[in-house]
């Protein structure tokens, strides 16, 4: 199989909190995979480990066959909050990863500007983040993530902070963007519809200590849209995912 990223038997405990229990998952090239799990089960912790900013107690992160456990800077990482720098305009914010790599301003701008149209940010290059709506800020954060590393992107609830309506527009928009770019994406969400709309595969995690409870393959035909919600295949899949999510372990 053409797997670009693999997490092998990841375990992690905080002082008195056993968070991740033996998580193994993989992401194939150009695949969109979602991780669904109850709140506080350790999804963000798993992402910090994959991004290399936290160390697992056990297990390894393998990217393109090489060990990347605890090594930051290989994959790009987007947080639920946009985390844009309030003191920089959108263009500079988006270019930040390039600046950090030592690319000069002119070159960085030239590299980022062609993507502004696709990310719906054209004409807002010189605005400060505080002047943009939540949806636009989130798109800017996504473009910044994209500028850092295009082959593997980790998105941690990128639309979690948006209102329902904006979130839906953003999901549709992201789906269209995914048609244009060649990235492999790992997404965290609470939203089953979001997961089924965007993904090729879905992992469902259990309560803490989190284990992978089940893996679903989403074979709905693309392009997907609002009308996909009505397909019997979709309804059936959503029901089994929901059942799997809410099925609590017996000791609780």
């Amino acid at each position: 199989m053409d797997s670009i990223l693999e997490a092998k038997n990841i375990k992690k405990s905080f002082v008195r909190l056993h968070t991740l229990e033996n998580i193994s998952l993989h992401l194939n090239r150009k695949e969109f995979v979602t991780i669904l799990g109850p709140s506080g089960c350790g999804k963000s912790t798993l992402f910090s480990i994959i991004a290399g900013i936290a160390l697992p107690d056990q297990g390894d992160v393998i990217i393109e066959g090489e060990k990347y456990t605890g090594i930051a800077g290989r994959v790009s990482f987007m947080h639920q909050k946009d985390l844009l720098l309030p003191w920089r305009n959108i263009l500079d914010n988006v270019c930040l990863p390039l600046f950090l790599k030592g690319i000069n301003q002119r070159q960085a701008h030239a590299e980022a500007l062609p993507h502004f149209a696709l990310f719906g940010l054209e004409g807002f290059e010189k605005y400060y983040p505080a002047q943009l709506s939540g949806g636009m800020r989130q798109r800017a954060a996504l473009l910044r993530t994209f500028m850092f590393s295009q082959d593997i992107m980790l998105l941690d609830e990128p639309f979690g902070g948006l209102d329902a309506l904006t979130r839906q527009t953003m999901q549709q928009w992201l789906m269209n963007v995914m048609e244009e770019i060649e990235s492999s994406v790992l997404l965290i969400t609470h939203d089953v519809d979001e997961a089924l709309l965007l993904s090729d595969r879905v992992y469902v995690l259990s309560h803490r200590p989190a284990e992978i409870r089940k893996e679903f393959r989403v074979n709905l035909k693309r392009p997907r849209g609002l009308n996909s919600f009505a397909e019997p295949e979709y309804i059936q899949l959503k029901e089994s995912v929901l059942a799997c999510l809410t099925d609590r372990p017996s000791e609780e």
Partner: peptide
């Protein structure tokens, strides 16, 4: 400074 912002800088290998 926002801890998550610093984490992001770390993730970008700053």
């Amino acid at each position: 400074v926002d801890k998550e912002l610093m984490d992001l800088m770390h993730a970008m290998d700053a």
